[in-house]
Design a protein around this nucleic acid. Sequence first.
DNA 1: CTTATGTTTCTTATAGAGAAAAACCTGATC
DNA 2: GATCAGGTTTTTCTCTATAAGAAACATAAG
Lengths: 306, 306
Amino acid sequence: MHYRRIAGWIVKTDTVFKRAFNDALDLVSRLSEGEPLPSENTLSVQLGVSRTTVRKVIAALKGGGLVTGDGRHRNVSPPGDAMRRYPLSETVPTAAQVEERFMEWMLRDSARPGTAINELELARKFGVATTGIREFLNRFQRFGLIEKRPNAGWVFKGFTNSFSLELFEIREMFELRSARALAAMPDSSPHWTQLEALRREHVQLLNEIDERYHDFSDLDSRFHRLISSAAPNRFIDSFYDIITLIFHYHYQWNKHDERQRNEAAIREHLTYIDALVSRNASMVELACRAHLASARETLLRSTSLQ
Amino acid sequence: MHYRRIAGWIVKTDTVFKRAFNDALDLVSRLSEGEPLPSENTLSVQLGVSRTTVRKVIAALKGGGLVTGDGRHRNVSPPGDAMRRYPLSETVPTAAQVEERFMEWMLRDSARPGTAINELELARKFGVATTGIREFLNRFQRFGLIEKRPNAGWVFKGFTNSFSLELFEIREMFELRSARALAAMPDSSPHWTQLEALRREHVQLLNEIDERYHDFSDLDSRFHRLISSAAPNRFIDSFYDIITLIFHYHYQWNKHDERQRNEAAIREHLTYIDALVSRNASMVELACRAHLASARETLLRSTSLQ
DNA sequence: CTTATGTTTCTTATAGAGAAAAACCTGATC
DNA sequence: GATCAGGTTTTTCTCTATAAGAAACATAAG
């Protein structure tokens, strides 16, 4: 964790500026020498930060000689010494780092069910203030893995088999409901073209599976989100956040059999897509259940290792 | 909001102590004069606080002359001047007060969809530090009514019709699933006796509806929780927290037609209970859907007023 | 040796502070 | 008159501080 220690006080990190600065370097390098710099407002939109931060970035670029002139007359300089990018780790906001470290503690270090979570201890371990830990735990509460005892800390309930079973029970209810809604969409709906595009992506990934099996995770997430979008519901979307988070971190540290797992999942998706395209309700249900059952088995195989 | 201002710092409120003290007054008043005071450990369990707080309470009782002696030889004093109880408002922790005030702002003052939520402004309005507001908002996020824009505050999405519709879509899925599970329970299950007891409570409440219609809310919540308990799932339980919170505050400020509404709901519950007892799946489904449809209509009638 | 109280240590709840980042306001420029 | 940049104000993020409250440890009484 990187701090700016000013007047003895460790405060808000400038990760927003650092990320924006890195992005700005890329952006400027794509412009040719002497070209005028886009306006502050334009950069603000392109970099996804406020004008205040854009101005800080421009000042830094000027300091490094990548931009000359000021006010309305700023130009890209002729290529001189490239400026140093900030390391990726300094562009991650504290809150995101806490999440990462906590998930690691929980999933990789196999914390045992019933373990007490100590805010102060985590704060020291992760190198942040207790406020940061509290904030994370309060947000994380909804994922059903921790529980608060007022005035007396938190308990980790465990990433157990029953957690996975309960998760998949809901997931199946939600997914079946959305799949039915999608299958009932009119032929004119844009969902069908999107689905067809996703089908082609699946086929392509299958052809290059040996090199690109890592890319499945993203495809998987987009596929399930397309299905959900057939009948939007904020509570279902919010539930998918849980699934996404769990899978993201879980598979990040559990690479066992990844290629085979993903290949099997792609084939299941293709069957599922065909069923959807056929509009045959019972085929959709069958394919959906089959896919979720195998995803559940995969997760269970690893939770029971704990 | 009541503070203890010591050495210029406003810190943790002593609401735990004050509530425990009030409870202890009741407890002591039920003991007869000269009787020995229960041990610190016993009191700790009875009052639901740590021994540290119990000792503070005992010290206060001694100071007020309600308890005499010390160490192992403490007795209840003969009744003298009754000690003043702390007002209820001083026994509510800051976090709970923030919740209350926020729900009031949202539901009663009819905040408009899209309204920006300003941490600093709320902190000033509610008389707490921004940390307290942030903590609440982070927890409250899961209820689907607010959304965070990093580095730029929160937006209130609105207590709208679509919120209610989405809420009830999920509620119906969950409730149907639990009702089916309950209907499939073996005759020997304790659920049936609990259900029978609840049925009698419903009948009784119906008989005294004019005086006791307020008591329905609690009965309603216990009834739906009994159904859920037939097949426990943490995500469903957590979803019921949303429903409970919304209904609790919503009806607290919307008393229109309360008696009639509750009477109708009790009759629906009775039909629903009979269906469950009959174990007839399609009757259960019918009764469950009918009840939820009418609950949804009630909620919609009031959200559309906004 | 179990259970009580006395004492000490650790943790949580919640205020305040201040840099980073966003938002706003204003006069200049195309 | 729409858009730009300079200056100013407001808000968020994230730190520290400290009393309240919980928990752990020590010692005494039955």
